[in-house]
C-alpha cells in the first residue's frame, strides 16, 4: 500500500505528533511525507529515520494555511491509497476536508494500525475515551488521523530522498492577522509527556505557585479542571476534560480534583495517573494508578523536594 503522511512544520522543525504519524504510516506501507515552509534539507532527509522513504516539500506556503494545505495534500495524494495525519490542531483543520475532497472514508483518533485481515479496520477512542470502536473504512482511498502519543516511535539511521513539490494552490480567502503563542516558554499541554493539574481543592489562584513549581521542575505542562478555568483562576486553554482539551500524557498528576466523569473523559488516555486529595472517597481514586490521601498544601511541597532529589541523582 502506498502511504502519504502530512507533517506539520513549525519554525523549521517537524512536530512530534507528525513524527509519530510518519512512523505509523511506514508500518502500513511505502511512505511519502508532504510538508511545507522553510525547513532545512537535512531535517527533511532525517525523516527517513522515522520510516519515510521520500519527502515532498512545498516552499511557497510559509505558514499554516488550512485552505491551501488541503489542496497541497490532495494533490500529493493522487497515487496514495492511505493518507495519514496527526490528530492535532493542524490535522483537525485539514484532514476531514482532504478526505471529503478525495471521496475517502476517514477514521479520526486512530489508536491502532489497520487490521487488514478482513477489510481495513482501525481501533479508535469513542465516548470521550470511555470506550473504543473498531471502524472499517470501505472506500478505495482511506484517511487516518492518528491520536497523538498513542504509538511508540522507533528510529533508524535511514535517510529519505527530498523533492520539491510545486502545484498551483490558488489564493487563500482566509488571512491570518495575528498569532498569540500560548504558555510562553512553558511546555505545550497537548504535546506534553507529563502534566500537573489542579482543581478547586486549591482554594484560590494565589495557590498555584507550587503547582507551577512542580511542573517546572519536572518539565511538565500545567492543566486544571473546568470550574477553575470558569471562575478565572487559570486560563481557559488549561481546562481539560470532556468540554476542554483531551490529553494523553505518560503521567498525569491531579491535585485537589474530585475526578468527575466529565473531567476523567479528557484525561483517561493518560498512561499513569497520580491523585492527591484530602478525601479518600474522591471518585478520582477509582481511576488512578497511585493515590495519596493528604492535604495538597503539605503533599505538593514534599513532592517537589523529592523530585528535586531524584533529579539531581538521575539527570
Amino acid at each position: 500500500m502506498s502511504v502519504l503522511v502530512f507533517a506539520d512544520s513549525n519554525n523549521g522543525a517537524i512536530a512530534k505528533s507528525a513524527q509519530e504519524a510518519i512512523h505509523y504510516g511506514s508500518k502500513i506501507g511505502e511512505t511519502t511525507v508532504i510538508t511545507y515552509g522553510d525547513v532545512d534539507e537535512s531535517v527533511l532527509a532525517a525523516l527517513g529515520s522515522y520510516g519515510a522513504s521520500k519527502v515532498l516539500i512545498n516552499k511557497t506556503i510559509t505558514e499554516f494555511d488550512g485552505q491551501r494545505l488541503s489542496k497541497l495534500v490532495r494533490a500529493a495524494a493522487e497515487s496514495a491509497e492511505v493518507i495519514v495525519f496527526a490528530m492535532d490542531f493542524s490535522g483537525k483543520s485539514i484532514s476531514s476536508r482532504v478526505a471529503a475532497g478525495l471521496n475517502a472514508g476517514m477514521v479520526s483518533g486512530a489508536l491502532s494500525l489497520p487490521d487488514t485481515s478482513n477489510g481495513f479496520i482501525i481501533k479508535k477512542a469513542v465516548f470521550s475515551g470511555k470506550a473504543f470502536a473498531n471502524c472499517k473504512i470501505n472506500s478505495d482511498k482511506k484517511v487516518i488521523a492518528l491520536m497523538p502519543n498513542s504509538i511508540q516511535v522507533e528510529t533508524s539511521d535511514a535517510i529519505a530522498t527530498v523533492e520539491e513539490f510545486i502545484v498551483d494552490l490558488g489564493n487563500s480567502t482566509v488571512s491570518v492577522k495575528e498569532f498569540n503563542a500560548k504558555g510562553e516558554g512553558g511546555v505545550l499541554l497537548t504535546d506534553a509527556d507529563l502534566v500537573v493539574s489542579a482543581g478547586r481543592g486549591l482554594k484560590g489562584p494565589e495557590n498555584w505557585g507550587m503547582i507551577e513549581e512542580l511542573a517546572n521542575e519536572m518539565g511538565a505542562a500545567t492543566a486544571c479542571s473546568r470550574p477553575v478555568a470558569d471562575i478565572g483562576w487559570r486560563p481557559h486553554h488549561e481546562h481539560v476534560g470532556q468540554t476542554g482539551v483531551a490529553v494523553r500524557p505518560n503521567l498525569y498528576i491531579a491535585v485537589g480534583i474530585s475526578g468527575a466523569i466529565q473531567h476523567l473523559a479528557g484525561v483517561n488516555g493518560s498512561k499513569v495517573m497520580v491523585v492527591i486529595n484530602t478525601d479518600a472517597e474522591a471518585p478520582f481514586f477509582k481511576a488512578a494508578d497511585y493515590g495519596i490521601v493528604g492535604d495538597a498544601f503539605e503533599v505538593v511541597p514534599k513532592l517537589i523536594q523529592a523530585y528535586k532529589k531524584f533529579n539531581e541523582v538521575n539527570n
Binding site: K130, A131, A133, N134, K136, V275, K286, Y290, E298
Partner: peptide
C-alpha cells in the same frame, strides 16, 4: 464510507496503589 464493526470497553482498571502522604520519595 465507514462503519463501526464493534465496540469495546477499556479493560478494568487495577486497584489504585496508595502511597503514604509523608513519603514522596516512595512515590
Amino acid at each position: 464510507m465507514t462503519e463501526v464493526v464493534s465496540y469495546e470497553l477499556p479493560p478494568a482498571k487495577t486497584a489504585c496503589k496508595m502511597v503514604d502522604a509523608e513519603d514522596m520519595d516512595e512515590l
